[in-house]
Amino acid sequence: MRRLRDGYISDVHCTRSNGAIYFNNAHNVKIFGCSARDVSDTAFDFEGCTYCLFDGIHSVNAGNFGISIFYATRGNVIKNFHARQTAEAARLRERYATKRFKPGLGKTLFRRLAGFEDPDFEQDVVLDTGSFVYEGEGFGLVAVDSWVNVTYRNVNHHNVVMDLRAHSNAREQYLQDNRFTFTKPASDGDALVAIGPNSASYARWQGGVIESTVDQPSGVIPLLAQARAYGGVTIVDIIECRIDVPGVDTSILIGDARRSGRSPGHAFRLHGNLVTKGSRMAALNINQRAGGAALQLETLNNRDLSFSPVDVETDQNEGIARYRELRVGLKATRPR
């Protein structure tokens, strides 16, 4: 539906199509109570849309994306949603005997991508109250990137990793009261959740839980927070988060990831977090080692799950080498 204005759609249910509810440059369209199953491309999409709403949508098995937004986005809201990918999602292309809609991995629950920078058009998206569930091999993926501000709250994830800095162009990020549960081990050197804007702006992770019901390899990073903007100061807050991922050496890894030696340093505030017993919080000083200013850091009342105080340690050369080898986003969804 191209350039639809002021529309209302409800109770539409699609199966075995290339897509379900798909818009291109729509404005002020409301979609309620719709579902999709076994679609070969993307089930629900707001491509280039402004001030549109998905409310109460349900997606099961999409060859590429359960929910997606391509190109421009302003004022779009997705709420009360559920998206699930099973092992069948990756086989849809073969099932339908089509070469279209590659790569057809069937791993992505939500993706915002293929955006563009326009200084006269501030872009944003809101995801509010829902669930993402992955039941195939490895892990599913949520990724938000490409010059957009994102508000993301009260979303449950089951065996789903997140990357909010995938294309290095993510903007302001507000994440609150989200839950990530993992029931199988990742690979050593995987980041389960990665946040951090690439602009002199702001990111905030407040509340929420990252937990695993099985032991993870020691090199798995439950929460990676990094800032990479070339100039200015990015501020990243991590507040009142609980991380319960047994086996990991580092629960939270933060870093000013610039390799060009810039000043001033990016800033991180870690307040009131609870991390895995026996694990640590670590800071990477990549920008400082490149000749720039030190990372700016404020920590307060961070403890592990035995309630012992935990401070932020500065990682040495070997930590930086491990950081550069981390698998983040789509790479982390696949077993080694």
Rank of each mutant, 00 (worst) to 15 (best):
N24H: 14
Y174Q: 07
N156W: 05
G138Y: 05
A20C: 14
D55E: 15
R95W: 05
V77K: 15
L175K: 01
A89S: 15
N18F: 08
D11G: 02
A294T: 00
R324G: 10
R336D: 13
E47K: 13
E117P: 05
E240A: 12
P119R: 11
G189M: 08
E172K: 12
N80I: 02
L300I: 03
D128E: 14
G66R: 04
G196L: 02
K30F: 12
N198F: 04
R327L: 03
N169V: 02
L113H: 13
A194S: 15
R327F: 05
P309T: 03
N273H: 04
Y152S: 10
V161K: 06
N25V: 02
H167P: 00
D145R: 15
S306N: 13
F65M: 07
T333I: 12
A170P: 00
A191P: 13
A257L: 14
M1E: 07
L192C: 08
V275M: 05
V39L: 07
L274K: 14
E172R: 15
N61F: 11
S201I: 07
Y71D: 09
E94F: 07
A283T: 01
K184P: 06
R303I: 05
F180P: 01
R336S: 10
T314I: 01
A143E: 12
D45E: 14
T86H: 11
D120V: 03
R204H: 12
L109K: 01
S279R: 07
V126I: 12
N61E: 13
I31T: 15
D163C: 14
G19D: 11
M281C: 02
C34I: 08
G33R: 13
A290H: 10
V148A: 11
S168N: 14
R262F: 06
A293T: 02
